[in-house]
Simulated assay, not measured.
Amino acid sequence: MATTKQREAAKKNVKKAQSAARDQHTLQNLSKRTRTALGKEANAVRRGDAPTRRELEQKARELGIKGRSKMGKDELKHAVAGAQRGS
């Protein structure tokens, strides 16, 4: 689980990203389905239901997954899940 400090940092980062996206109108160029998925993922992290990328990377390090620093969050999720199933 994420600590309070990590959750606060994640909230701050999400707000910064949202602000930048508003300024650049980035979200307008995404499909409604993608925007919805991004919102649901952000809310899950805020609630503590979903792990942060940092938490996933730490777990990948513990499991000895190679190439983790170059992976995105979804790739890390799948790699960690696969490694845990294989253990």
Rank of each mutant, 00 (worst) to 15 (best):
H25M: 09
S31Y: 02
A50D: 05
H25L: 11
A42N: 13
N43S: 11
E41C: 09
T52S: 05
L27I: 09
Q24I: 09
P51G: 05
R35G: 01
R7V: 02
E8Y: 02
A20D: 08
K11A: 10
R7G: 05
V45I: 15
Q6S: 03
N43D: 10
R33H: 10
V14C: 05
G39K: 13
R53P: 01
E41W: 06
N29H: 14
N43A: 08
Q6K: 02
R33M: 08
K15D: 13
V45Q: 04
L38S: 07
D49Y: 04
T3I: 10
R22F: 06
K15R: 14
R47M: 13
V45L: 03
R53W: 05
T3E: 02
A20H: 08
E8F: 01
V14M: 11
V45W: 00
L30E: 02
A21D: 12
T4P: 06
R22G: 07
T36S: 13
Q18D: 04
R35Q: 04
A42S: 14
R53L: 06
A42K: 07
R33K: 15
K11D: 04
Q24G: 10
E41P: 04
T34W: 02
T3L: 04
K15A: 14
N13R: 13
A20E: 10
N13G: 02
T26P: 00
N43I: 00
S19Q: 12
A44S: 10
Q24H: 14
A50K: 14
V45S: 01
A42M: 11
A17Y: 08
Q28A: 14
D23F: 11
T52F: 04
R53Y: 05
R22T: 07
R22Q: 13
K5W: 04
K40P: 08
R7C: 01
A9L: 07
V45Y: 01
T3Q: 03
L30G: 03
V14E: 07
K16R: 12
K16P: 09
K15S: 12
L38A: 12
K15T: 12
Q18T: 00
D49Q: 12
K15W: 05
A20Q: 10
T26V: 07
N13K: 12
N13F: 00
A10V: 00
V14P: 00
A21G: 09
R33W: 05
Q28P: 01
S31V: 00
K15P: 03
R47Y: 07
Q18V: 00
R47V: 08
K16A: 15
D49V: 02
L38Y: 07
L27W: 05
T26R: 02
K5A: 13
A21I: 08
K32F: 05
K5Y: 05
K12H: 04
A44Y: 02
R47L: 15
K5C: 03
A17D: 09
N43L: 06
R53S: 11
S19A: 15
R46H: 09
S19I: 02
R7E: 00
A21M: 07
